[in-house]
Design a protein around this nucleic acid. Structure first.
Lengths: 137, 137
DNA sequence: ATTACGTATGTAATAATATAACACTTAGAG
DNA sequence: CTCTAAGTGTTATATTATTACATACGTAAT
């Protein structure tokens, strides 16, 4: 074990395509669609959908981004250790998405899951809301 | 029209396309994809994707079926009054989907939502699990 | 009974989202 | 150095969903 690392340095480093896709999502902070990412990164050398989807798949697998299923979009993960569990609010009026950081909520869901004897490997929670600014206007 | 009956409230009656799509989902009990529904109902007179999507949209709106976002599929609602709130388990191995009827879970989620001052109009919860039969084998 | 209106229908075309197949490259482990 | 796992680049294609437009049909108001 100590002499032989099964985890190579390579596996911890993002490849170029993974890097530029992650950077774009990081800088945006908003959910982006795969083909928007493709268009945005044409100048960086991304030419085909598959290049984008492969990078996205890997980043999701690494827990660095999440897919928001109901809007076919990807967003940077802003929790340090949310694993593959996700919880979002999506404004029904303006479409704004926020990842829920509230520990009470996610802990509560975990408890409910335990109480109900569900063996969950991961979950995806999408809450449709009317966000503050939309509520005012 | 072969019969003379006049329904008092047309708005509560499903149209032919809505009916046959609902019947198929009802009989199946499983989540079905739009284009599978289209293929299955060719003999009933459905010819285009749009006819299917229009029926599905209406049925979702009426709360008679749900869309399971992460698998782009539609399933009959087996709760009498779940409104537009949905909670499913999806087996990661065999893909089997079950609507969660557990009142504790859904009530709990509602409480959590209240406690965390989220104003939710509806929600969509997708729990990925290893189902009983897949756990055994 | 006729009109106006909202909703549904049928059809063709196309947009948006995602994957398959294949040949090639690269980096690290042994 | 060589083997292998992972990533790349590219073309083509599959899957999912919507736009646009013309037509039909039931209901309520006139």
């Amino acid at each position: 074990m100590s002499s032989t690392h099964t985890h190579s340095k390579k596996s911890q480093i993002l490849t170029k395509n993974q890097r530029i896709v992650l950077d774009l999502l990081q800088n945006s902070g908003e959910p982006l669609k795969a083909y928007f990412i493709l268009d945005s990164l044409k100048k960086e050398g991304l030419n085909s959908p598959l290049q984008v989807y492969r990078a996205l798949d890997k980043l999701v697998e690494l827990g660095k981004i999440h897919k928001i299923e109901s809007i076919n979009s990807f967003i940077i993960c802003n929790n340090s250790n949310c694993a593959s569990n996700t919880a979002f609010t999506i404004c029904e009026r303006c479409g704004k998405v926020k990842e829920i950081k509230n520990k009470n909520l996610t802990d509560g869901v975990s408890d409910l899951v335990k109480d109900n004897q569900l063996e969950i490997t991961r979950y995806n929670l999408e809450f449709y809301v009317l966000c503050k600014s939309c509520k005012i206007n």
